[in-house]
């Protein structure tokens, strides 16, 4: 379990988060959603331990973050930030390797890196200069890097991936490919994934539970069907939204049409 309890955070005089609590159980994918500036990324940073002042209120597998050592923590949670700035011409392989602290034999590392790259369909880019890749390719390489960090050694307890808009530059098929991979990892590994996501329909299809935020507060938390309600979404996004049933059985959110105008 990765959880944060009653987090209130002020940054430069402004309340960025107020009384936010979140719990991500193992074996589930949790999506954090909400309009720009709602505090989604900040909440993800709180969960990854970036704000030392609240580390006492965040717990990973039953132990407060303030009691974890950096090295041990890295075995149980990995973080993919919204953007990674790199000025130096690393190869894709070197990018993955740079994030792995755990010592491995040369051969094991080669195999490990290859496996992770293949998982996100970037195996063919292994020797390429990272800086010459497209935004979407860079994003898939970063996904491979954070998963490679966790998978570098066998797990003794649930592990957590924290991903901030990890598919924002991906094309349609790769978006679904990435989420399928993550979903499979969550269920086979009994690990947790927490994603900050803008695409409501991706969340509807893949997430096990949702957390909807607005202005630094939690508006609604629960299952996909509980949270994706036309009225709630229209209020939070200040934009008309209609929710219908997708033929495959999950809610389908259609924006730009108010619920009243379309109802038959």
């Amino acid at each position: 379990m990765l959880s944060a309890h009653d987090i209130t955070l002020k940054l430069s005089g402004r309340d960025v988060l107020s009384q936010v609590s979140i719990a991500a159980p193992p074996g589930q994918m949790l999506a954090i959603m909400g309009p720009n500036g709602a505090g989604k990324s900040t909440l993800l940073k709180v969960l990854s331990g970036d704000f030392a002042s609240v580390n006492d209120q965040v717990a990973l597998n039953g132990q407060r973050l303030s009691h974890w050592r950096d090295g041990a923590l890295a075995q149980f949670r990995a973080v993919m930030p919204q953007s990674v700035q790199l000025n130096f011409a690393f190869t894709v392989e070197e990018v993955i390797e740079a994030g792995i602290r755990h010592p491995m034999s040369l051969q094991a590392r080669q195999v490990h890196i290859g496996r992770m790259l293949e998982m996100f369909d970037v195996g063919h880019l292994r020797q390429r200069n990272y800086l010459t890749l497209s935004g979407g390719e860079q994003q898939r390489v970063q996904l491979a890097r954070v998963l490679a960090q966790l998978e570098a050694m066998p797990a003794s307890a649930p592990r957590y991936l924290l991903l901030d808009e990890c598919t924002s530059s991906l094309d349609l098929s790769h978006q679904h490919q990435v989420f399928s991979v993550l979903k499979a990892w969550v269920s086979t590994d009994q690990s947790g994934v927490i994603v900050v996501l803008h695409d409501l329909n991706l969340a509807a299809q893949y997430a096990d539970s949702l957390l909807l935020m607005d202005q630094g507060q939690v508006v609604k938390q629960g299952s996909v069907h509980d949270v994706l309600q036309a009225q709630v979404l229209s209020d939070v996004y200040r934009y008309p939204v209609q929710v219908i049933e997708h033929p495959a059985g999950w809610p389908l959110v259609i924006a730009g049409v108010s619920a009243s105008s379309v109802c038959p």
Binding site: G71, E97, G99, R101
Partner: peptide
């Protein structure tokens, strides 16, 4: 090496920054 990708990436990878 990790630091070239940023301070938080380095810390999240488990290094004592």
């Amino acid at each position: 090496n990790a630091f070239l990708m940023g301070e938080s990436v380095t810390r999240h990878s488990g290094f004592d920054v």
